[in-house]
Amino acid sequence: MLCLSLLSPPALADGSTGTFKLPPIDTSAKNRCSFSSSNIGQANAARDKLYDLRECDMSSQPARGYDLSGVLMEGTNARGADFTEAQFSKGYLHTSDFREATFVNAVVDRASFTGSDLRQAVFRNAVLTGTSFDGANLEGADFSDAYIGDFDQKALCKNPSLKGSNEKTGEDSRFSAGCK
């Protein structure tokens, strides 16, 4: 049993798994590139099928209050999308465009924004627990009144792109994230 655990390390939900492989994109799926909320409610990423929005253009689309738990968004254009009060538990949100997106009052729990563009995004009053922003561009992002755990806040404050002010809210990015 010990040999098995050494050969296959676990895939971690925080995005730190280096060799994570995603299944191929099913481009034939009808209505694949549209936001839809989970029918299970508070499902915590439990869906009846893979929720795959990779390489989709979701720019400026509303997703207010949607349960987007377990969503795969890689190479996705979600610029200006409204995620107010949305839930992103266990979201894989890598190398996507979230510029000017709104995450006000959202629950972004154990999600990974690795390499994504979050310039001018607003996370006001959002819950950001176990969420990774490794290599993300956070210039002008607003984290005012967001709940960020101590460990997550330390990692967030180490991001060199966390600078400037948000054009809509006027909030300083580093100050709003609670960085010293």
Rank of each mutant, 00 (worst) to 15 (best):
K21W: 00
S96M: 12
F103H: 05
R64G: 00
R32F: 02
A63M: 11
A106Y: 10
A81R: 12
S112G: 05
D26S: 11
D97S: 14
F88G: 00
A106E: 08
K49D: 12
S37V: 05
T76A: 13
A29C: 00
T84Q: 10
P23N: 04
D48Q: 06
C33K: 00
F88C: 01
A46Q: 15
G91D: 11
A78F: 01
I40H: 07
T84A: 00
G65R: 02
Q87E: 13
S37L: 06
C33N: 00
Y51C: 08
I25Q: 10
L53C: 05
A78W: 01
D52M: 06
K30T: 13
F113K: 14
G91W: 12
G115P: 05
F35V: 00
N31A: 13
P62F: 03
C56W: 04
D97E: 11
P62Q: 02
K90V: 10
A106V: 15
E74M: 12
G70L: 08
V104P: 00
Q120C: 01
G65S: 03
E100D: 15
A43G: 14
R32E: 02
Q42E: 11
N39Q: 12
A81P: 04
S59A: 15
R54M: 08
S112D: 15
A81W: 02
T114I: 15
L50C: 11
K21T: 12
D109C: 04
T27G: 03
Q42G: 13
G70A: 12
C56G: 03
A78D: 08
P24T: 06
A45E: 07
L50H: 00
M73E: 09
S89Q: 14
N125Y: 07
Y51S: 07
G65H: 05
S34I: 03
K49P: 01
R119F: 02
R110W: 11
R47D: 14
E74I: 14
K90M: 12
M73F: 03
S69W: 03
K30E: 08
L53P: 01
A86Q: 07
A43D: 15
S59P: 00
D67T: 07
E85L: 05
F98S: 06
A43W: 04
A86K: 04
P62W: 08
E100Q: 13
E85T: 10
M73V: 00
S28I: 02
Q120T: 03
A46K: 13
V71Y: 01
A81V: 14
R32V: 02
S116R: 09
P24K: 01
P23A: 13
A78N: 07
S28W: 02
R99M: 12
T102K: 15
P62I: 05
E74T: 12
F35M: 00
R54I: 09
R79T: 09
F113P: 07
R99F: 05
T102R: 12
D52I: 09
G80D: 07
S59Q: 04
G41C: 09
